[in-house]
Design a protein around this nucleic acid. Sequence first.
RNA 1: GGGCGGUUAGCUCAGAUGGGAGAGCGCCUGCCUUACAAGCAGGAGGUCGCUGGUUCGAAUCCGGCACCGCCCACCA
Length: 863
Amino acid sequence: MDEARRTKLERTTRYDPAEVEGRVFEGWLEGGYFHPPATGTPGENFSVAIPPPNVTGALHMGHALNGAIQDTLVRMRRMQGRNTLWLLGTDHAGIATQAVVEKELRADGTSRHELGREGFVERVWEWKQQYGSQIVEQYKRLGASCDYERERFTLDEGYVRAVYRVFVALYEKGYVYRDNYMVNWDPGSGSAISDLEVENREVTDTLYEIDYPIEGSERAMTVATVRPETMLADTAVAVHPDDERYRDLIGQHAILPLVGRRLAVIADDYIDPKFGTGALKITPGHDANDFEIGRRHGLDEVTVIGEDGRMTEAAGERFAGLTVAEAQEAVVEALRDEGLIRSEEEFTHSVPFSHRSGERIEPLISLQWFCRMDELAKPAIEVVERDEVRIVPEQWKRVYLDWMRNIRPWCVSRQLWWGHRLPVWYCDECGEVVVAESTPDRCPNCHGGHEELRQDEDVLDTWFSSALWPFATLGWPDDTPELRAFYPTSFLTTAREIIFLWVARMVMMGLEFADDIPFRDVYVHSVIQAPDGRRMSKSLGTGIDPLDEIEERGADALRFGLLVMSSTQDVPYSMERIQQGLDLANKMWNASRLILLNAADVEPAARPVLPEDRWILSCLQRAIESVGGNLDAYDFSHAALELYRFFWSELCDWYLEIVKPRLYEGEPEAAANLLHVLERVLMLAHPIMPFVTEEIWSYTPRADAGPLVVSEFPGSDPGLIDDAAEAEIGAAIELTRDLRRWRDLVGVAAGTVLTARVADDAAPHELVGRLARISFDGAADGGDEALATVGAVEILATDEIDAEQVRRRIEERREALRSEVERAERKLANDGFVAQAPAEVVDAERRKLAAYRAELEQLGAGG
RNA sequence: GGGCGGUUAGCUCAGAUGGGAGAGCGCCUGCCUUACAAGCAGGAGGUCGCUGGUUCGAAUCCGGCACCGCCCACCA
């Protein structure tokens, strides 16, 4: 350490993350430590594919926790000598990105339609170039040790090739197909979306009961609906086959009011006779259930609501062109005029909304591309059943399996412009459909003349490309060194909300196309909620920006806090935990200053000279075992807390206080030992708190040999575990605390050194005198009478001690002991306990009783 | 309607295989003790949601109940 560095260390009494982090991170990047060679096998190597953040994204707490978990693990494995790749990339996020840019266009007074497809896509690319890297920069702020030289994007040329290869292959296998089918139409994004992008919300609507007259009869059937406007597309009325009320009507016809269409009265088990009137209007064009019923019965499918959210021509001229809401009003009005509305009442039910745009889903029949999932799911179920892909915590394994076993076709086409355009071409001449990886020059079916092929306008669901992430980012479909070295990846972590959207699909696609599972372990982490327990979200105003927290308390603090907070259950965000992280960083910094500024110039080495040295080395081994073990088991919370406990309590509160005098005296063994412990604990802490540990490391003697980021992660040395030292120092600590407690209760000034003597042969450890400020000098055995006895220490009366307070304190203690004795006696008098409890438990109880009695004896009968 | 998780100190949470309830923050008392006042020493504070049961012994195991949260599901 040169003079300037030493001065800086001396003067910096507070750790300042803002001053350190940027500089340290630059150093890591320059060293190239995050860019592994594509060598070795997946079994030897450690690799993680980052859950790709959206290019639209700003780092939020979910990313921060997700990143902290991955980075902690990645850094530990790297330090353990594994060739480690943390692959970074971003997702084009079709709907989200398109929405952001469209909003921008609106602000400019234009629209994507004015720009045209080509212009719009170009505009999005510009946007992406400008803002897409922000999220990557923010991961750096967190300290994420990703391979920034291998950054990928789901619309990279190579990635697009992978997507097309997969789509075509699935088409050729017959899994991908085009069909007119009921889809979730999202009016917000103007696109179909998949079932997984729909969320149900409780909504209170008006439930209308409407009379449908029976043809050639005075009777009417009363049906109930919350969406009267859809009646315009009704093509049947259904009842339960066993419903006595309607049995005679089955096969007859009702007349659809306002429209006049004849509706067959059909029977279907789906109808619940107990609900409402037991008669259900069937609208195959605008209701998912009715669609199914309609297909079962071969009903007509009438569409009265268009993709633009307005009524179509088929709704009749009275309603065509109206919005759905307007149409609803108009239909109700018209029905009311005809006296056909029987009742109106409030009705609360759950209704599908678009998770993307927040708008109410309009179920529509639409010509879309779908992917059958059942065959793909089979092997993906097996690998999880067999724990080849291990999901932790295990409860999510069942959730995954339940979903997979009931998997349904996936609507993969989206009516957007930003994304992977379907590799599908149509020949308008002959109707031929060409699905190919590259643009075909001509229709293979039309001989001679017609060559113009029209590419499908739609793009693929963003999750279709995400599903290929672990192998497409490594170069698939080419046989690349990266793929050979790092696939399957080792670990994946995510919030549970994308188990289906992403995790499950990666498993299916990985097995189908990369011939292996995409990752071994999946860790499902908790969700960080707002401090008040609500969802953390920008729109609710409950979001907390990780970058603000990094500015204020540093990335190490944020990482530590998030890891401590996270567990298997969702937790409210706690700023106090982040502060605890900063406090720990500061503590590390200052403890290190003490050691580094005072240690003699020696080689760091374990030097168990005195019992306390053996004690701290033993404690260190246990901490190493515990922190490392917890990280291996993905128990990040306990890992972080164990680190905190060891560093703060054992190392700082006790060992540093004990060893200080030797350090100041320049004892080489003490210095060597302290430097050793410091080094090891920095290594241990580095995965969790990389910045502060790396900064401190740069001041240590071993810094010349290389940075901490690529030093070793410590393993415990069983030879240094020392039960005897732990018992001995443990007893000294206990006695010290008892004496301090006694002093405090009795009200002796903090600085006062009390005079005492040892009460019996069990001499307390020599450390106790100094730590508890007790002098054993000048107190001859058997001299003055003891004022009080604490453990083996007899405290003698001096002017500083208020004898009256002492007397009271002793009486209190006696009282407590009496009740303890009584409790223990009662327990031991219980024959059942003595007979049936394990012998060591009973023994322990007997020993406690004996100890209490002895102490009581020592204090005298009192009174 | 099914499933999962939760209920422990004022707050946020820990508490394998059942044997006298813990941490951080907050609070109280005393300390600027030559690493750190973002610190040090000490302390107060829980009938472990309610209720049955199993057991010598239950925060812990089993059965009910009550709230809270999440996921899945086609009831108009």
